[in-house]
Computed example of a mutant assay.
Amino acid sequence: MNALLLLGGHSDIGGELAARLCSGRPVVLAARRADSLADVAARLRAAGATAVHTLAFEAADLASHRELVERAQELAGGVSTAVLAFGILGDQARAEKDEAHAAEIATIDYTSQVSMLTVLADTMPHGEIVAFSSIAGWRARRANYVYGSTKAGLDAFCQGLADRLHGTPLRLITARPGFVIGSMTQGMKPAPMSVTPAQVADAVAAEIRTGKGSATLWIPRRLRLLAWVMKLVPRPVWRRMPR
């Protein structure tokens, strides 16, 4: 019962993290376009995965979450590491006028995460669950408040879930990276203290291997200082801050 489940098989961060954790164990990749995961699967096999299975995963279909996790456990003989790497950035300008798009962002980036985290916490007897918050949720900005609000809610949920799991064989690792330079943010100007998917994966993998109990990771660590400063910026100044 040592398989790795990656929810969001096309994720840059998820792929990097899976490559660091897959050696000597089976992997289950779950994604909306499960038939296009061949390259990811090949990379993980090359990194030492004993087997790679793929499953179709629609995050917004909440009713399918428990069945998907059960299927992953059946395929791989049990899951001891689950990584929630699915999500969308969305289009802030569109979301301000299109309530369906705003709800789509909220559903995938918050509601679906809450649903899947609840299923995993209920079905995994031990190991670790990895969830991804963001500096964007620390204080929502005018430029991306729809996305930022989902990360704020997810972060709060994760802190409570981590407390619930305290003292059990199952732990939750919540990563709070800064601006991640990857496919999701392609074409956007990097913010201060930006990180790459590889840097995020390195930090999470190190915590999995050496840490104990649930943890919240600022990536990079000095981002914690910037977050403290962000809370002190006056509201009139803050509302003009870029993404």
Rank of each mutant, 00 (worst) to 15 (best):
P192V: 11
L225D: 02
S214W: 10
P197A: 10
Y147G: 03
V119S: 14
I173A: 02
A106H: 15
T123R: 15
Q199M: 08
S134T: 02
R221N: 01
A121V: 03
A131Q: 07
I108Q: 04
C158T: 00
G178R: 00
I173M: 10
H126G: 14
D202A: 14
V130P: 12
V114G: 04
D122P: 06
M241T: 15
P197Q: 06
G127M: 04
R240L: 13
L161M: 15
L165F: 11
S149L: 10
M241V: 15
R222W: 00
M193V: 06
A191D: 04
K189N: 02
P242Y: 04
R141C: 03
S115I: 01
A121D: 10
N144K: 05
A215W: 01
P169H: 09
F157P: 05
I105N: 10
P192Q: 08
S149H: 07
I219W: 05
W238T: 13
R221E: 00
L172A: 10
R239I: 15
Q199W: 10
A205D: 08
A191S: 14
V229G: 05
K231F: 01
L165Q: 13
T118R: 15
S133A: 15
V204Q: 05
K151Q: 05
M230D: 03
L165W: 08
R235V: 09
A156L: 09
I129E: 04
R240H: 13
R164S: 13
I105R: 03
R222P: 00
R176M: 04
V233D: 01
T210D: 13
A227E: 00
T185Y: 12
A121G: 15
G167Q: 12
F132S: 02
R209E: 05
I219E: 01
V195N: 04
E128Q: 13
M193I: 09
I135K: 09
G160T: 02
P190M: 08
V204P: 03
T118Y: 14
G211Q: 03
L232C: 11
G187E: 04
S194L: 04
V229D: 01
M193R: 11
S214L: 10
F132W: 03
T210K: 08
Q159D: 13
G127H: 12
L225E: 01
M184A: 15
V130H: 08
